[in-house]
């Protein structure tokens, strides 16, 4: 490391592609079997969740699978830092917390 380099800004090599629209993000390319996750978020701040009816969504031909809080718990996905569930199960911990994601074949 050259002398005096600590604390000195250096030009980033990756900036050129990001600035010209040539970055490659996950959404920019296709892979066989790719699915999109569509997150359903809570419309209220805090609430009990007696049930989430996903039957209508699951009846859509493009929907591959829907996952509820119980599925995530059963798969032992674990929790976010602080112990918050990734997907709310019995109780909605905060506004806009995710209730369930549905995986679909296209993002249309």
């Amino acid at each position: 490391m050259p002398e005096g380099s600590i604390g000195t800004p250096i030009k980033r090599r990756e900036d050129h592609r990001f600035l010209t629209g040539a970055g490659r993000y996950v959404g920019d390319f296709d892979r066989p079997g790719r699915t999109y996750a569509s997150m359903v978020r809570s419309p209220v701040g805090h609430a009990k969740i007696p049930n989430v009816d996903t039957s209508k969504a699951e009846a859509e031909p493009c929907v591959v699978k829907s996952l509820k809080g119980a599925d995530w718990a059963a798969d032992e996905v674990g929790a976010l830092s602080g112990g918050w569930p990734v997907i709310a199960k019995n109780e909605m911990p905060a506004t806009s917390h995710k209730v369930w994601p549905a995986l679909q074949q296209s993002n249309g």
Binding site: G21, A22, G23, R24, Y25, G27, D28, F29
Partner: peptide, 8 residues
């Protein structure tokens, strides 16, 4: 058009 520089 396959122009992915514009992001969603």
């Amino acid at each position: 058009l396959g122009m992915t520089g514009t992001h969603v």
